[in-house]
């Protein structure tokens, strides 16, 4: 049982506790399938404060997605306490936006209808004209102009991801959970998406929990990177990213500080990747 305090040192402890958006205290999760007990996450303690962009990096199967599912309220901890804004979760956490690995677009809706979906719900009551405007703005932001009336089956994998991103961002949830959202995109598109994501999340002061395989991506986007170990996962190392904001995602990876961070974290990560059972 390792207690890992990942709060930035610059903030006083009491104040830090008050402004924690998400906090896991010795949370572990294991699954029992047909009698076999599979631990997915070892006892983990971490805190993510309001407005922070935190990345989880680690080999496949290390429990990164499990952490996201716990924060979303889709799973309950096997042990420990998970609090959101100071209170434990009861059921589904509707204050997060969750972009899963598998895109859950409604196949019978066009691109613009899919993106509009969250705004149509009664809990938000957005007037019709405003919906149309915001959808249009989002479509431009993710670069899908001209594909408004396409159905998901007519879009490539990368495009579907962008629709999912637009759908998640359009209602500006206070917390964003993202599970390898940009894995399927080519390099240029990925950078463009990074830029957009960064702009939007910084402007709205969203708290982001970002899961990825790509260490460079993690460093470029985050305030803090957590390296997880192979299954069953735990946090092996937490690293604050001191790179100044706002960041130019196109150029930041050429800075010497970036290089140093990358090397240091890669050392940690590559051991775990070698240990990981599935690739």
């Amino acid at each position: 049982m390792r207690m890992l305090d990942v709060r930035p040192r610059s903030i006083a402890p009491a104040a830090a506790a008050a402004s924690n958006r998400v906090r896991l205290d010795a949370v572990s999760k294991s699954f029992t399938v047909r009698g076999t007990h599979t631990p997915a996450l070892q006892e983990t303690t971490l805190a993510i404060e309001d407005g922070a962009f935190v990345s989880l990096v680690g080999p496949s199967g290390c429990g990164k997605s499990t952490v996201l599912n716990l924060v979303a309220g889709l799973l309950t901890p096997s042990s420990g306490v998970l609090t959101y804004d100071g209170a434990p979760l009861s059921g589904l956490n509707r204050r997060v936006g969750y972009m899963t690995q598998k895109d859950t677009l409604l196949p019978w809706r066009t691109t613009e209808a899919n993106i509009a979906a969250p705004l149509e719900l009664a809990c938000r009551a957005v007037p019709r004209r405003e919906v149309a405007e915001r959808v249009r703005a989002m479509i431009d932001a993710v670069g899908l102009r001209g594909f408004e009336k396409h159905f998901p089956a007519e879009l490539s994998g990368g495009m579907r991801k962008r629709v999912a991103l637009a759908r998640t961002l359009i209602y500006e949830p206070e917390t964003l959970l993202m599970d390898e959202p940009f894995g399927a995109l080519d390099a240029q598109l990925k950078l463009l998406m990074h830029d957009q994501l960064q702009r939007l999340t910084q402007a709205r002061r969203m708290t982001v929990l970002f899961v990825t395989h790509d260490l460079a991506e993690a460093i470029a986007l985050s305030d803090r990177v957590l390296v997880m170990s192979a299954r069953p996962g735990r946090i092996r190392r937490a690293q604050d990213i001191g790179l100044p904001r706002p960041r130019d995602v196109f150029r930041v990876r050429f800075s010497p500080e970036f290089g140093r961070l990358h090397e240091a974290l890669w050392e940690e990560l590559k051991d775990e990747v070698a240990k990981g059972t599935d690739v």
């Binding site: 589904l92 936006g97 859950t104």
Partner: peptide, 10 residues
């Protein structure tokens, strides 16, 4: 998953 996605959205 589709149902859950919408549920999380509210």
């Amino acid at each position: 998953d589709l149902v859950e996605a919408l549920r999380i959205m509210g």
